[in-house]
């Protein structure tokens, strides 16, 4: 009796094959592909490779989205490096685990480039997170939808804002003309605590906040029981008898939500 096929896994692998010729070759070849059973792989091996490229703008459209959300990161690492995201384990994780491509790019792919990006990648990842107000969240007390705290080297926000200005009103267009990555280096020392909030008009507000507040909100990025956040608040300097009230205030201010 043959093993049951998981059609969703097959379809997800097909998506990766469409974005990434090297993954398509891997599936067709003899190397290990742990995410597929032999039967599922056999279904995919029957695909005519030419059929994978009939939409020759598929990857370009997805790249456009990443460049639009990570313009300064892209300027620092170069568009070619951004484009290689679609050949990465981070992209495949997004496809196989029902993730967000833009968040996976920031949280998983840019991590390996942190030395080059310093706090810039973290800012743009936090912005991508804040934009996704409708993202489903797990139960518990956590950052409200549209709220993203981030801790970066001192001076990164000002550096970032200057870099955005330099890219002009159409950053993606500017990036397509960029022949090599910017040599500029973002700040590397000190600490700056930022809070990014989605606005009702669809835009984002970026500003500095206290270390305690940002630390507490970072702890609340993954929703958790209220008692745990009370403990975190006390560790970050809140008076023991005021920590509960502090959480209530943050809920009232729209920074935390159940």
């Amino acid at each position: 009796m043959s093993a049951r096929l998981d059609p969703r896994r097959i379809q997800r692998a097909l998506v990766c094959m469409m974005f990434d010729p090297s993954y398509a070759a891997l599936v067709r070849g003899d190397g290990s592909v742990t995410e597929l059973t032999a039967g599922e792989r056999a279904v995919l091996r029957g695909v005519d490779p030419r059929g994978l490229t009939t939409d020759d703008m598929r990857r370009a459209r997805a790249l456009h989205v990443i460049l639009d959300e990570y313009p300064v990161s892209a300027a620092l690492i170069g568009v070619e490096v951004v484009d290689r995201f679609f050949e990465s384990a981070a992209f495949r994780a997004c496809v196989f685990d029902r993730g967000s491509m833009a968040l996976g790019f920031g949280r998983d792919y840019l991590v390996a480039l942190a030395d080059r990006l310093q706090g810039v990648g973290a800012i743009e990842t936090a912005m991508a997170s804040a934009r996704r107000v409708e993202r489903p969240r797990s139960p518990g007390l956590g950052c409200a939808p549209g709220v993203a705290p981030v801790c970066v080297p001192d001076g990164t926000l000002a550096w970032y804002q200057r870099a955005r200005e330099r890219l002009g009103p159409d950053p993606v267009q500017a990036l397509t003309k960029l022949r090599k990555p910017w040599p500029n280096k973002p700040p590397r020392t000190g600490l700056e605590h930022l809070l990014i909030e989605a606005k009702r008009d669809g835009g984002l507000a970026l500003g500095t906040a206290s270390a305690g507040l940002v630390g507490l909100l970072i702890a609340a990025e993954r929703p958790r029981p209220r008692a745990e956040l009370v403990t975190v608040a006390i560790e970050l300097g809140a008076a023991a008898d005021e920590a509960d009230e502090l959480l209530d205030d943050l809920i009232a201010d729209g920074l935390l939500s159940q």
Partner: peptide, 15 residues
């Protein structure tokens, strides 16, 4: 593909 998010829309037939 992935979650329902920007840049992730396409249309493929079922397996």
């Amino acid at each position: 593909f992935g979650g329902r998010d920007r840049g992730q829309m396409l249309l493929l037939p079922p397996v």
